[in-house]
């Protein structure tokens, strides 16, 4: 292993750990909240089972607003909110708040798009069999859209990694922050390149896993 990596090994592992925490929490937020929000966006559309213009418009606007923020500004803008929830606006835990917010908005849009690919006829078959809304979602929609949902999550996770790299501004740490502070600001270009390589490998692994899983579960 190159000397410089050995020299900074502990810091590098610590920053990888922080990246994993930030991205991990984002993934959880995406699944636990982004998935339901995206499902609701889909179901409240015109002609769908829960058609509701008001709910749809509000959610749609909210998702659009969050997604139109330059992420750095969103982080700064959310500082009071972060302080309210975590008690501080600084550190890895605090960094997970804006990341989760963008994660929810990002993934919910991809969920909505995946669900739109489910043939309308399948929904009709479900309704004609007397399925409830819950049954339509879990026994039909998610089953039929599952490969799209996995691919969407893969795309989202890769975006979360990218978003997490700027969390240094609020002391969130992580690989990106490490690369900037040590590699860029301390002129250790070599170290920066190694960090970029780590990120590239990480993204490749995630994309490969996502693509493989989505292909395996796609029987269409």
């Amino acid at each position: 292993m190159p000397d410089i990596l050995v020299q900074y090994e502990a810091e590098i592992w610590a920053s990888i750990g922080k990246t994993f925490v930030m991205v991990g929490v984002s993934i959880l937020a995406a699944i636990l909240l982004g998935l339901p929000v995206g499902t609701l966006l889909f179901l409240c559309r015109k002609g769908q089972k829960l058609e509701n213009r008001i709910v749809f418009s509000i959610l749609n606007l909210l998702v659009n607003i969050i997604r139109s923020f330059p992420f750095l500004l969103l982080v700064v803008f959310l500082i009071p909110f972060t302080r309210l929830i975590i008690g501080t606006a600084i550190g890895t835990a605090a960094a997970t708040v804006p990341l989760s917010i963008i994660a929810i908005a990002h993934y919910s849009r991809l969920v909505e798009q995946s669900l739109l690919d489910v043939p309308k006829g399948v929904m009709e078959a479900a309704i004609s069999m007397g399925a409830s809304v819950k049954e339509i979602i879990f026994k039909f929609l998610y089953v039929e859209a599952r490969s799209g949902l996995v691919l969407g999550l893969t795309t989202s996770i890769i975006s979360f990694i990218s978003y997490s790299t700027i969390m240094g501004v609020v002391g969130g740490g992580g690989i990106g922050d490490f690369a900037i502070r040590y590699g860029y600001q301390q002129f250790k270009t070599e170290l920066m390149i190694y960090m970029i390589i780590i990120m590239v490998i990480l993204v490749q692994l995630i994309q490969f896993t996502g693509t493989t899983v989505s292909r395996m579960i796609d029987k269409r």
């Binding site: 043939p119 006829g121 399948v122 078959a125 004609s128 069999m129 399925a131 409830s132 089953v143 029987k219």
Partner: peptide, 19 residues
Amino acid sequence: RQARKSIGMIFQHFNLVAN
């Protein structure tokens, strides 16, 4: 929903769940 369970329906494009 209960009543629909005793009314079967089939379609031109079958509408099976592909997965």
